[in-house]
């Protein structure tokens, strides 16, 4: 299968037009059901009370933070191995979405932590790992934007995505270890009690909804990046043609 043909804006637009309505509809349906269940149907937790409702937007955001990073690493590998232009723009298009989900995970975690822990920020192992993941997203985006040549930015950030992918498990391990060394044992953890089906279903619905929302956002942003590249190429062509005319 020749994937290069999807890299032209018009072909990708056609592919995207086929997926887009399904992804958008599915996202709306899942998020609608998920929010209805999360806010109205699901019971309050016996320990955390109503504050447990933050879980339904916090935990899926954490899943997305990791899921989008995995996609970023895959796009990075495709960029370096096949030098594929679609992979290049995909990395650039997806990184801000991943950073947004990571930020939301941190912010909602902090808002959940205040009533549960009594503090806005606890150096809890999970939150700390997500914070570092957020830093890696920021580095990725800064590196991607740091060059005049878009291809160089894409390839450099692809290397960083892969280096990050092999390092993140090690960082996670070391932070967990560091945390058990320093953490007083009494802190209540954000993962809460063993999960009951009445909480699991809305959580899963929100997770699927977030994933589909990611697909929708990625499709729109990839199209925009492809058009921007094409525009850049057209401007270049015109500029190089002008002196001759």
């Amino acid at each position: 299968m020749n994937w290069h043909r999807f890299a032209s804006p018009s072909n990708f637009k056609r592919l995207s037009a086929r997926i887009f309505p399904w992804a958008a509809g599915g996202a709306a349906l899942c998020l609608g059901c998920g929010l209805y269940q999360a806010l109205l149907v699901s019971p309050p937790d016996y320990q955390q009370g109503q504050s447990v409702r933050i879980m339904y937007i916090h935990v899926p955001a954490a899943w997305m933070a990791m899921f989008v990073y995995a996609n970023l690493a895959l796009a990075g590998a495709a960029t370096l191995v096949w030098r594929h232009p679609l992979a290049e723009v995909a990395g650039r298009a997806m990184a801000p979405i991943g950073a947004a989900f990571t930020f939301l995970c941190l912010a909602t975690g902090s808002l959940w932590g205040k009533p549960m822990w009594g503090t806005w920020w606890e150096w809890d192992a999970r939150l700390t790992s997500v914070l570092i993941l957020f830093f890696v997203y920021l580095a990725y985006m800064a590196l991607n934007n740091a060059f005049d040549d878009a291809t160089r930015g894409a390839r450099a950030s692809a290397v960083l995505a892969l280096v990050g992918a092999v390092n993140l498990p090690i960082i996670k391990f070391s932070v967990d270890w560091w945390n058990t060394l320093h953490q007083p044992a009494s802190v209540m953890r954000l993962d809460g009690p063993a999960i009951h089906p009445s909480m699991l279903w809305p959580l899963l619905a929100m997770g699927v909804g977030y994933t589909l929302l990611f697909v929708v956002l990625a499709l729109v942003r990839i199209q925009a990046e492809l058009i921007e590249r094409r525009l850049g190429a057209l401007v270049q062509a015109r500029l190089s043609a002008e002196p001759a005319a």
Binding site: F135, L138, A139, A142, L143, G164, I170, I171, S174, V175
Partner: peptide, 14 residues
Amino acid sequence: ALIVLPLTVPILIF
């Protein structure tokens, strides 16, 4: 700094 500092966290910890 933005690229390298997050990667050095484990070294610092241990």
